[in-house]
Design a protein around this nucleic acid. Structure first.
Lengths: 182, 182
DNA sequence: AGCTAATTTCTGTGATTACTGACATTACAG
DNA sequence: CTGTAATGTCAGTAATCACAGAAATTAGCT
């Protein structure tokens, strides 16, 4: 499978993006390829298209599966595993958010809780304690909010985003500041 | 400056977190230290506290400045630069979001636009074209929304998040799906 | 069972990134 | 201007990460 120029550009750029967000370049590229392909590919096709080692594809595929971004598909009269990703970018986004939350957010929240529970901490700097407490509250708020957003059906989520900051008009009556209203 | 156990744990964990999000471990640690310290520190204090080379502090500081996360403070009768970060975790978050948008999001949007503008693309796979178009729309929506959210005053932002998915009740009347509402 | 395709695991190598220590530059005091 | 403290730059080294190729394993066919 020969990549067309635009597809190549998209895939390469997606690899760069991934790197900057802590995701292996090849892993991101494979995912981008599957996304553009829009159909299940088997490992050998990926090898040939991206010019990477078969073993590299194997482990990258594993990685993508652990992120729940791709799944195996079997075709009639073909022994090989084929891999497919959602073609719905919103769904992909939600999957990544969900997974990053579980992997990185939740454990951090746990660490912060333990920090605050540490009895030695009382004797430590009160300012630091306060800031860790605020960090925990921040992460809990963000976390709970993320959970809710991710659960919304796609179209609702889009609407919520498009509503954007107009939402604040609905919040009047609380102590909501009106400055910077946009 | 000797780190207390909890502070040490916080800083080490923050370093791990940073790594997973594509931010240098030492850079994250220095920022965590400044955050906990809650007061301006000079380079030598950072060197001693984190046991890293002076030159490493220098470049990490530069990095943090480029992220707009810290700024220089001068103390009376002290030639040395001191560095300080906001102690408001929401403000820090907004700063990071703003900066990542400029660095990574916006350029990607630009690439996607160019992909779609590419005349060769018409002759390429229509499905892929459609998916790139959807990706662009997705990123534009997310981007515009992020801009607005980041502009909201802190307390409003917190309120918006705490409102969470209840917001969808305010959207009735459009084609908003009601499934998964809870 | 044996044979072969498909896949995974593993180990060594290559590439990238992070870091240090030496040196260079800048800023300031006297 | 000279000396010194502070900061910045840079080249080499260390550590980490990504990857290829070989070997091992698994799965399916006959």
């Amino acid at each position: 499978m020969e990549l067309r120029p635009v597809a190549r550009r998209f895939i390469l750029h997606w690899g760069e993006m991934g790197s900057k967000w802590g995701i292996n370049r090849t892993v991101s590229q494979i995912h981008a390829l599957l996304y553009l392909a829009g159909r299940p590919l088997h490992a050998e096709e990926i090898v040939e298209t991206l010019n990477i080692a078969r073993s590299n594809v194997s482990s990258s595929i594993r990685e993508l599966q652990s992120w729940k971004l791709i799944h195996v598909v079997h075709l009639m009269s073909d022994r090989r595993d084929h891999f497919e990703t959602s073609t719905d970018v919103w769904e992909l986004f939600r999957t990544v958010v969900r997974e990053r939350k579980v992997r990185e957010f939740d454990p951090t929240v746990e660490v912060l809780r333990e920090c605050l529970a540490d009895s030695n901490f009382n004797r430590e700097d009160a300012g630091a304690q306060q800031r860790i407490r605020e960090t925990l509250q921040f992460m809990e708020t963000l976390s709970a909010w993320g959970d809710e957003m991710v659960r919304l059906p796609r179209e609702t989520l889009v609407k919520v985003m498009k509503l954007g900051s107009k939402i604040q008009q609905l919040l009047r009556g609380g102590s909501t500041s009106r400055k910077n209203a946009g």
